Simulated assay, not measured.
Amino acid sequence: MMMNRRDVLKTAGLVLGYTLTAGTAAAVLGGCSADATPGWSPSFLTADQAKVINGMAEVIIPGTDKMPGAKDVNIAKFIDETYMYYKTPEQQQSLNDDFKAFAEEHDFGAMKDGEKMAFIKSELEKGSKFVKTVYEQSVTGFCTSEKGSKEVLVFDPIPGSQKGCIPLEEVGGIWAI
């Protein structure tokens, strides 16, 4: 069963509101962004880690011919910059350790496309720390990217007045920050 883009983005507010760690918040506020920079190579992540992360992110937030997806914004670049510049050495080591344990147990790249989403859902239910990190960072990176915030979320660079308690249907979607 494929994860519906709408379901992912409905939970984006919760992910951004409840799981945004200090390092990730600093990265977003400091200007880290996910974008498809041609010729980009990771500084913190290895090339294999970046490939796996981008593959997982594309399953989590798939693109269509009308809407951009995680592949269009290069989530691995966002995660690479976040961990390189805004995470503690302990958090950096934790990500590397979690990836190593994940890679020893699973070959995500060898899975068929139809198996990948079920695998990610299963790993999230089991509490896989690496998969949870990639999921959260993917949603954060996508929603704060220019393509994600302007082409998928409702974007208004100079919003009007604040109305705190109105139904989501009246707002017209989840808004970019």
Rank of each mutant, 00 (worst) to 15 (best):
G63M: 08
I166G: 04
D113W: 00
Y83L: 02
E81P: 01
G173S: 04
G109C: 13
F99W: 05
A22L: 15
I174N: 08
A25T: 10
E123W: 00
I75Y: 05
V28G: 01
L124S: 13
D156T: 15
C165F: 15
T64P: 09
G63D: 03
D48I: 00
I79M: 05
P38T: 11
G39H: 05
Q93E: 09
E123Q: 11
E115Q: 14
V154C: 01
K100H: 07
T144P: 00
G23P: 11
M56I: 07
E105H: 13
T133N: 01
V139I: 03
I79C: 01
V131N: 04
V152Y: 03
D65A: 09
T144G: 00
F142L: 09
T19Y: 10
Q49C: 05
A25F: 14
V152A: 08
D48A: 07
D7N: 10
T19C: 07
V139H: 02
F108Q: 03
D156M: 10
D156L: 10
A27L: 08
G148P: 06
E123V: 04
L168E: 12
V28Y: 02
V131H: 02
D97K: 05
A34M: 06
A26H: 06
A25I: 07
E136K: 04
F119K: 09
T11G: 12
V59E: 05
V15I: 11
V152P: 02
F108D: 10
Y135F: 15
K147I: 09
M3A: 06
T133P: 00
S94N: 06
K163L: 15
D156K: 15
V171N: 08
F130D: 05
C165I: 10
P89S: 09
A25E: 15
Q92T: 03
A110S: 15
S128L: 08
K51S: 13
T133H: 06
V59P: 00
I53E: 03
G173D: 05
L9W: 07
A25V: 08
K163P: 00
P42V: 09
G39V: 09
G141F: 02
N54S: 09
A118S: 08
R6Q: 08
Q137T: 06
D98R: 03
Q137C: 06
D156C: 12
W175I: 15
